Amino acid sequence: MTALPGGAPGSAAATPMRARAVVDLAAVRANVHALRERAPRAELMAVVKSDGYGHGALPCARAARQAGATWLGTATPQEALALRAAGDTGRLLCWLWTPGGPWREAVEADVDVSVSGMWALREAAAAARATGRTARVQLKIDTGLGRNGCQPADWPELISAARAAEAEGTLAVTGIWSHFACADEPGHPSIPAQLAAYREALAAAERVGLAPEVRHIANSPATLTIPESHFDLVRPGISVYGLSPSPEIGLPAEFGLRPAMTLSADIALVKRVPSGHGVSYGHQYVTPGETTLALIPVGYADGIPRHASGTGPVLVGGKWRTVAGRVAMDQFAVDLGGDTVEVGDEAVLFGPGDRGEPTAEDWARAAGTISYEIVTRIGTRVPRVHLDDLP
């Protein structure tokens, strides 16, 4: 395994930024270490899909490799090929394929490709023959999630065909894997049912002669709370970035995790307004008395959820404030009451919580969603600033 090539530590640009998402790569490394301690006998795949859950795939992949992640995982082949183009040469799995995808490029780049049905196996084999290389293939079984993965009824055909292709040297079955539906719900009956179905699929694959390098089903919540699911490899995603997959199973600090992203913006305007003044579209908020408003220059075009209108928390002037009225495309307001701040002061939307600021989980509750969506939806207009303590 070879990590991504090094680079200079990230730092804020000299020109002041309207907003920024600061990503602490030391926290990413510490999170990977904490996750490895939860699964000491398994390898670890750091999932860096969706631009590293909004944190920046390349810097976070490098940090995860440095902390001992022997695998990386992506959804789309384009994400996987971008990692290869950036210099990553370690084990890498990509799982979301459609017909006509860049199978040949992935085989040439030594990317493990996931196969959930016969059509995909045929395309992977054709790419291998075209390149003269052996395709690295991982077979996915649907153990009950009902999304991607081969149905148990079709599994015998798939594993037999895969074994035949392996015997002729077209491909190597490097992994057999699945995904939990409810691992973030402790005690859910689907968890043992899926584990049983997965073990049955493994046994069937063994009977036809397949001997994969890695067997894996554990996502973030399973890595943290279901040790019997760890097998050869665990596959955490959101927890790599320091967020708990579900507050029901525990807060980040309970697992030794630290949120890596802090989202903040510089206040664009401060003004006094009279009692009864409407704020933002639809006047859903009207000032109850003479007050001071502060304008925060980010909105739903930057990924701030409009569903958090009137509920989203922000740390301004050392106190929690709430979005006043609707979140607009590029901005929203907060009511400071009797307080005041200066234009250019920092407003912190979320972070680890060390300074009393809200967290991504607080925003998730305010918007009626999950923390995954809060961090991954932060848009490209918000620069990522990567902080690193390594040379």
Score class of each variant (00 low, 15 high):
residue 340 T to P: 02
residue 7 G to H: 01
residue 105 E to N: 05
residue 246 S to Q: 08
residue 273 V to K: 01
residue 23 V to D: 02
residue 345 D to T: 05
residue 75 A to W: 02
residue 249 I to G: 03
residue 344 G to R: 10
residue 325 G to E: 08
residue 321 R to S: 06
residue 67 A to Y: 02
residue 107 V to H: 00
residue 310 G to V: 14
residue 133 R to E: 13
residue 13 A to R: 15
residue 245 P to Q: 07
residue 155 W to E: 08
residue 278 G to R: 13
residue 356 G to W: 01
residue 134 T to P: 02
residue 232 D to E: 13
residue 11 S to W: 00
residue 272 R to D: 15
residue 170 T to G: 07
residue 236 P to Y: 07
residue 173 V to C: 05
residue 42 A to H: 03
residue 350 F to A: 10
residue 223 T to A: 09
residue 381 R to N: 10
residue 112 D to T: 09
residue 112 D to E: 13
residue 390 L to V: 12
residue 260 A to W: 03
residue 176 I to L: 15
residue 279 V to F: 00
residue 122 R to L: 11
residue 253 A to W: 02
residue 92 L to G: 04
residue 383 P to H: 02
residue 100 G to Y: 08
residue 260 A to S: 13
residue 201 A to V: 11
residue 126 A to W: 08
residue 339 D to S: 04
residue 202 L to I: 07
residue 13 A to F: 11
residue 185 E to H: 01
residue 306 R to L: 15
residue 221 P to S: 12
residue 163 R to P: 06
residue 348 V to G: 05
residue 268 A to T: 05
residue 326 R to E: 15
residue 318 G to Q: 05
residue 142 D to G: 00
residue 364 A to M: 11
residue 85 A to R: 06
residue 262 T to P: 00
residue 53 Y to L: 14
residue 182 C to Y: 10
residue 329 M to F: 10
residue 249 I to R: 01
residue 357 E to P: 01
residue 292 T to M: 06
residue 376 T to E: 15
residue 217 I to C: 06
residue 175 G to L: 06
residue 143 T to C: 13
residue 160 S to I: 15
residue 46 A to K: 07
residue 65 R to F: 09
residue 58 L to G: 04
residue 258 R to T: 15
residue 362 D to H: 03
residue 221 P to D: 08
residue 171 L to P: 00
residue 80 A to F: 00
residue 322 T to F: 03
residue 257 L to R: 03
residue 212 P to H: 08
residue 357 E to W: 02
residue 378 I to E: 05
residue 124 A to I: 06
residue 332 F to C: 13
residue 231 F to E: 08
residue 100 G to T: 12
residue 305 P to K: 08
residue 280 S to T: 14
residue 9 P to S: 15
residue 139 L to N: 03
residue 98 T to Y: 08
residue 116 S to A: 15
residue 161 A to Y: 00
residue 104 R to W: 01
residue 187 G to I: 13
residue 306 R to W: 13
residue 349 L to K: 01
residue 154 D to R: 04
residue 22 V to F: 01
residue 313 P to R: 07
residue 377 R to P: 04
residue 47 V to Q: 04
residue 185 E to K: 01
residue 70 T to N: 05
residue 25 L to G: 03
residue 299 G to N: 06
residue 214 V to L: 13
residue 370 I to A: 14
residue 7 G to L: 12
residue 317 G to I: 12
residue 157 E to D: 12
residue 48 V to D: 04
residue 262 T to M: 05
residue 288 P to E: 14
residue 196 A to K: 10
